[in-house]
């Protein structure tokens, strides 16, 4: 990957550490406005939506169906309440069978 990767890694480490460190040291006890806390707690769910769609349909170039089957399988297994690893492995399993026979 080269030196760019290491600069990126350094940046990622820095921007991850700062929000973890500031409230425990610099702020120490001050409260945030509720609107700000609300927006901050929304981010994890919003980012997942943006990450999944539409990219999931294009994981295999020119094969929309591959991504569609994968997404549907993952949603289905997850809705039934199975854990992370089961969803990931189950989806890979279904697509492995699909890639072998299609």
């Amino acid at each position: 990957m080269g030196p760019t990767y290491w600069w990126m890694l350094f940046g990622m480490a820095l921007v991850t550490y700062i929000p973890r460190m500031i409230p425990l040291t610099v702020l120490d006890g001050r409260k945030l406005p509720p609107l700000v806390t609300g927006i901050l707690s929304n981010i994890p769910f919003a980012v997942l939506g943006a990450l999944i769609f539409p990219a999931v349909f294009y994981v295999q170039e020119g094969n929309f169906l591959f991504g569609l089957i994968g997404a549907a399988t993952a949603f289905l297994i997850a809705i039934f309440g199975f854990g992370l690893m089961t969803v990931v492995l189950g989806t890979i399993g279904v697509l492995a069978v699909y890639s072998l026979f299609m």
């Binding site: 997942l48 999944i52 999931v56 994968g70 993952a74 949603f75 854990g83 969803v87």
Partner: peptide, 9 residues
């Protein structure tokens, strides 16, 4: 993507 879906659902 399966992992993202498993986290979200």
């Amino acid at each position: 993507y399966a992992l993202f879906i498993a986290l979200l659902v």
